[in-house]
Amino acid sequence: MRSESGSVVRVRWRAAVQWLGWEFAAVGRTAGSAVRRSGPERDAMVQSLKAAGAAIAAWALTGWWLEAPLALMAPWTAIALVMSTVYRSLYSGVQQFAIIMVGTLWASAAMAVTGNSTLGAMALTLPFMVLLGNYRRLGSQGIYGATTALFVITYGASTLNQVGHRLLETLIGAVVGVAVNAFILPPVHLRSVRDNLHALARGSGELLAMVAEGLREEEGLARAGGWHDRACRLGQTVQALADARQWTSESYRFNPGWRLRRGSPQPPAEIDAVWERVGAHLVAITRTLQNTAGADARLTSPSYAYLARWADLAENAAAVCNAEADLLEGAGPSQPLRDQRHAALERARIVHEELTTEFQREQGAAIAVGGELVVETQQLLRELADIN
């Protein structure tokens, strides 16, 4: 029993050491990526350093220069307002100052009513402030009301002069945080839209290439469930693309530096809907293939020859998606990539025209499945043709 227990402990210890190794390696990769090239990692590093700088500046103003009695309020507020966009900093700054003002006034009044009793003031203040903090319109700033009230109560501030100091310290911290975010490398989210479009194009191309490869094998349909799962996961990237559009639009608002950091033009917003429909057709195609696989298949699979011919179409459609991904990535001169995309699309159309007659030669219920593949593929090719 002891030897078995010792073995379990050793296995768990090795697993914990291995997990720590993975975590340290991931941290190292992230840090290296932030230093070597621009991207989300570098953006996070810049925003973190800006938040730290804003907190130090707010402390210098209130604690060192003004000698405020509770200077902690200023850096605490400043560090929270260096956010992902200037607009969000301004909007959250107004929310935060309002809720902090309510928390300060309520807690000070509770201290006065209870004769500076810490326990009594908490009993009068915290239930209300925590409930108020859950008010939907206050968003993530609602919690600052309760925490500010705790600072005020534990510090024992109840006079008008002390309340005024708390509000002044908070206001200074808010101004410093917003100013640092707005005027020192103001964040502009430009890469996220292009990155997500690239992920959609590359993911669609890889999926179509995988399906094409599998359909040329005798037992390739056995992997159709995995193809369908991968097609469904493209929907997550579609949602990420929609979020990126919102962040990009928001990052321009009230941002004094966006003209200096615009970079390359953004792909038009209309393209998002095209890729969303491409993803929907891929889901439908892979669902059909999944339903023809296995001993308990719901649908009758077309012949191997027909599926192999459809694989030629999928391979060319994959080439269209991959060429678009290369264009978004800037992997080479644009005109050759556009010509490559156009040629692949034309080849896919030729195969599709042939399949529109070939599916009728299938036997029995397989005709319906072949026809469904033809219809979905026709719509898929139309969407890919709309990508300019």
Rank of each mutant, 00 (worst) to 15 (best):
R2Q: 14
G6H: 02
R14N: 10
E23L: 12
F24C: 15
A26G: 06
G28A: 10
G32Q: 04
S33Y: 12
A34G: 07
R36C: 10
D43N: 08
M45V: 15
I56T: 02
A57W: 11
A58C: 02
A74Y: 02
L81F: 01
V86F: 10
V94P: 07
A98E: 10
M101I: 14
V102C: 05
W106I: 04
A110L: 06
A110M: 04
A121M: 02
T125I: 04
G133C: 01
R136Q: 11
A157V: 10
T159E: 03
N161Q: 14
R166A: 13
R166C: 08
V176N: 01
V178F: 04
A182Y: 02
V188R: 06
L200T: 01
L208Q: 09
L208T: 14
V211W: 10
E213P: 07
G214A: 15
L215I: 08
V238M: 07
Q246N: 13
L260I: 10
R261P: 09
R262V: 14
R262M: 15
P265V: 13
P267R: 03
D272W: 09
H281A: 11
L282S: 05
N291L: 12
A311V: 03
L313Y: 00
A314D: 04
E315S: 07
A318P: 02
E324W: 13
R349H: 15
R349K: 15
E354L: 13
T357C: 13
E358H: 15
R361Q: 15
E362N: 05
G364L: 04
A365C: 09
A365Q: 11
T377A: 13
N388W: 13
